[in-house]
Nucleic acid binder design. Structure first.
Lengths: 207, 207
DNA sequence: GTTCATTTGTAGCGTCCGCTACAAACAGTC
DNA sequence: GACTGTTTGTAGCGGACGCTACAAATGAAC
């Protein structure tokens, strides 16, 4: 991954490397959560001062939302794509959950998923952040649902499968895994959980 | 449920009703979470002033831990007992999860479980609170595990059942349900999820 | 009725928070 | 080298936080 080269066209003192700073902010938000991550701590990690942060990102909330977008793109987009691409639904779901385990334990400190955990128990003041994350969490369920519905029409799942309930259950499991990860569960422990979790998928109908 | 009558033995001005105040504090912590619930907000709900709160409960953190104990006793003890008491493991697990759905949606506002959610993303200062809750969350898995092991020795589950993994998966599901509840899922939605969740239990072995 | 232990309400402490005014530092333009 | 536009670092604002000093208020003991 190469940073886009912005060869400094404008006048004035050159700005800090925005991409690097965003990456470091993501790390702080991920490990600490949205509110516990203070602007002072973010600035220290980003190696800039508050005025630079506010000039470049607007506010702590906007910086967080940019970090979330970056996080989704870097860590989850590929996993959701594989879920859609793998032809067999059982393989696809199993693969997705193993991807998830890898992502959730990819940081040094126990963290879980930024979208699921970073802004729980957030003050009412930053309700926009909460709403945006809630929408992202709902997206997860929708992706599961779309994949399951395709599996039913492909006759990989029984026709009477409650795809809504099953999608919600898989999403619940995914979100629960974040809590386990934050509580310090190891990659092995999470793997044993997902092995059980994927048994929620009904067997393929008899052919 | 009657409040214990403490007939005011000591000298001095009589103290406010501690039990009522604790109940109201629980409500605030439950609906808002640990850190978003400010001492000012707690005092307003408890109808006392800060010095009274600190004289009676010590600190915000200690008040919270007392509220958690009260919460566990009032809302969850019966459910865990039923899990242990019901003879058939499939019935017991199903019953427990339906109890859980009822508890998680028992408040007017979307909340989830105090133990699981109220102190996620808590500042490092109150690490004791986090550790205590983490221990409580682990207890849930242990109760599942004990029930599953009994079911295996009762030949209600296959002998080769991965009871550790299954207990962890059930606990993950339970914790995930709290997140769904906090995101506003209705009782019906949660019920459809647990119907799927309990399919993680293997069928009884052939007799 | 006086005494005295206890709780109460007021008022505010110190601290950290997100955020910003301001002037010095810098890098291109001419 | 003077000018100009941008970013930088310092230093601090207003406000919310958890918590507490203090004196007035209360009610049992005598």
């Amino acid at each position: 991954m190469t940073t886009t080269i912005a060869p400094h066209r404008s006048k004035g003192r050159p700005r800090f490397d925005r991409a690097v700073a965003l990456e470091r902010a993501l790390g702080v938000f991920w490990r600490r959560g949205y509110e516990p991550a203070s602007v002072a701590e973010l600035c220290a990690a980003m190696e800039i001062n508050p005025p630079s942060l506010y000039a470049a990102f607007g506010s702590k909330a906007q910086l967080f939302m940019e970090a979330v977008e970056h996080y989704e793109r870097i860590y989850w987009d590929a996993a959701w794509e594989r879920l859609a691409d793998v032809a067999d639904v059982h393989e696809a779901i199993a693969g997705f959950f193993h991807d998830a385990v890898r992502i959730l334990t990819s940081q040094d400190a126990p963290c879980g998923c930024l979208v699921i955990l970073a802004a729980t128990n957030v003050s009412a003041e930053s309700q926009e952040v909460n709403d945006a994350l809630k929408a992202l969490r709902k997206e997860g369920r929708d992706w599961f649902l779309a994949r399951l519905q395709r599996a039913v029409s492909d006759a990989q799942l029984p026709a009477q499968t409650d795809t809504d309930g099953l999608a919600a259950a898989l999403n619940t499991m995914l979100e629960g895994l974040s809590l386990q990860a934050r509580d310090g569960a190891s990659q092995d422990e999470l793997t044993r959980i997902v092995v059980v979790a994927i048994t929620m998928l009904p067997d393929s109908p008899r052919r």
